[in-house]
Design a protein around this nucleic acid. Sequence first.
DNA 1: GTGATTTGACCCCA
DNA 2: TGGGGTCAAATCAC
Length: 305
Amino acid sequence: MRRGREIAAQLQGLLRDSPEAGRLVDQILHAMSRTIETAKAVAAAEEGSEGHSEVTTCAPGAGKRKAAGGGDKRAACRRRAHHSSTVTMTIKDVEDGHAWRKYGQKEIQNSKYPKAYFRCTHKYDQQCAALRQVQRCDEDPDAFRVTYIGVHTCRDPAAVAPVVLHSADELHAGSRLISFAPNASATTASTTTTTGNTSSHHCDQKDAALLASLRPLKLESGAGGEQEEVLSSLTPAGSSAAAEAMRNAAATPGLDQGDVTSGLHNCYGGDDLADMATFNYDDDGTFDLDDLDDVFRFDHGQADY
DNA sequence: GTGATTTGACCCCA
DNA sequence: TGGGGTCAAATCAC
């Protein structure tokens, strides 16, 4: 980030004749400075506590599962990994742009709601080790406590939001850029509110459509007969509900395909960088700077820097 | 047919 | 020893 800030400062010098370009560079510098300050604060908070070393050993015979109808086929490495990067945050929208696959759900002691376990869809095809755990907050059923374990090493197309180009001249900025919309405002319409430990990224109507599309994994009668529900993984790539929501959003006047996919980015990217860094520490306080990179991955995908 | 979800069983580890 | 994390067969959805 420091290097980026230096380069942006150089760019600002070169663009001093263009007020608009200078203003944009100002915004870049401001965002970078905020991110650096946030990283510093995080590092200071973590001072003195070392991150956990990753232990993913899978020794022969270790963690063998006893035959349960399937014999030794079910034997697998069950040694619990101690992950180097763990981030827990409380959010309203569980959608993060990555493709997740649910692999388990557990009732948690002293919690009203079960915890759902997700792994990256590309765990096997791209050896991506990212995991996510989602649990509805007891005190605020509208919010979800999401724990990210590990970082994405995959290149998920669904997570790469396209960039809106205003003119063909902008193509030189990067070969991965995709031109969609003629309307630049579509990429900037988002607001962020942060209340206490809860970071809520409220986006515009297309994101509301995504949020509304969250469907319960399971409806069951809880204590007292009320219905409890657990949110499913919502992924642009894997969820038909999400796809439907995105289709609906695409039909919204003023929005085009570019708007739909970049809407995911709107929730997390751009000026929201500093706000995204309002993490809650896990119980064990695990956190490292790799997490910042993970959280900011949306911009990596679209900004091509 | 393929991929995602559900869910009971298994196992690690505090 | 039990809570929590993971596996994988069965089932579901498209």
